[in-house]
Computed example of a mutant assay.
Amino acid sequence: MKRRLLVLLVIAGMSCLLPFAADAAPKTDGRPNGGAMSYGEYGRPSTLDPITSNEMISLRLTELIFNGLVGINEKQEIVSELAEKWDVSSDGRTYTFFLRKNVTWHPREGEEARPFSADDVIFTYKMTMHPKTITSLKVRYEFIDTAEKVDDFTVKFSLKRPILNALAKFSFKIIPRHGPSNPLFLTREDTFVQNPVGTGPYILKNITADREIILVANENYFKGRPHIDKIISKPFADQNIMTQALMFNAIDMIVLVNPRDIPEIQGDKRFVLQPYNAL
């Protein structure tokens, strides 16, 4: 993994690290609630789905919108996500995941929220591996031989061979079978890639004419409602202008720091310079 630098402007009610924002915490953790946080990105995301996305700008957003069967926290520990527990066979070739039963997909406008189930997991795997789906994930998951639905809340993956750290690879994000317009494979022409539906702590509200991406808190998130009400991703074509926007309080955070700006930022007590792991 590469080490990147993130600048966080600490203001009342917004003490949060974006790379780990998906770990919503209980309301009793003492952290402040409410407010909005805007952060600057150097560029725009090409897609907002976790399958065709292949750059960090998109992946930062899909981390907030979607969940995997398991997750990896800031300490690089494997934690429960959509699977509440799992079993691994003695030969290391069969992984059985027992899914949460209280998870729903973000509701589309005018619709009720639909329940998450094993069908969505199998759908995601098959769509990812379909020959017509163009994604870098195929290589990462070629070690899987079969994916099987055992019942509505149990899935079983059989591996071609045991591999090191296989469990961590099941952090791939799950998409709903009712999401893409094509039920077999996913392309960047599908409306789902710009209007995604997930299970994560934040719901895509809209994309403005200026290409700002607005996410709002998922009130029904299975790990507990996130503290921040709204997250706004603002694109910048110039990294210097993005840094100046931070310095003049036009945005709260940037996620990529120009090395030549580090001394100035470190010398300003308003900011916290936080290294984080990037793919």
Rank of each mutant, 00 (worst) to 15 (best):
T187D: 15
A209G: 08
L215H: 07
P196D: 06
R188D: 15
V193H: 06
A209R: 10
T199V: 02
E212L: 13
K205V: 04
P196I: 01
R211Y: 09
Y202Q: 01
A217F: 08
I213R: 03
A217D: 06
V197G: 04
N218S: 09
V193F: 00
L204A: 00
I207D: 05
Y202S: 01
P201A: 08
T191E: 15
F192P: 02
R188W: 09
D190I: 10
D190F: 13
N195I: 01
T187P: 13
L204R: 04
D190W: 10
V216H: 07
K205H: 12
A209T: 12
A217N: 08
A209C: 09
N206A: 14
V193L: 00
T191V: 14
V193N: 02
I203Y: 05
L215Q: 03
I207T: 08
R211Q: 13
I203A: 03
A217S: 13
V193R: 02
G198Y: 00
T199D: 01
L215Y: 09
K205N: 15
I214F: 06
L215P: 01
P196V: 06
E212H: 14
R188E: 15
G198K: 02
I214V: 14
N195D: 12
D210I: 07
K205Q: 15
D190N: 13
V216T: 13
Q194F: 12
F192M: 10
V216R: 04
D210C: 09
N206H: 14
T187G: 15
R211L: 09
E189K: 15
I214P: 02
R211E: 12
I213L: 06
E212A: 13
I213T: 05
I207C: 07
T199G: 06
T187K: 11
V193T: 12
N195P: 03
N195E: 09
A209S: 11
N206V: 12
T199L: 02
T208F: 06
R188H: 09
P201I: 01
E189A: 14
D210P: 06
Q194P: 08
V197Y: 03
A209V: 14
A217Q: 10
T187L: 10
R211V: 09
G198H: 06
T199W: 04
N206P: 06
T199I: 01
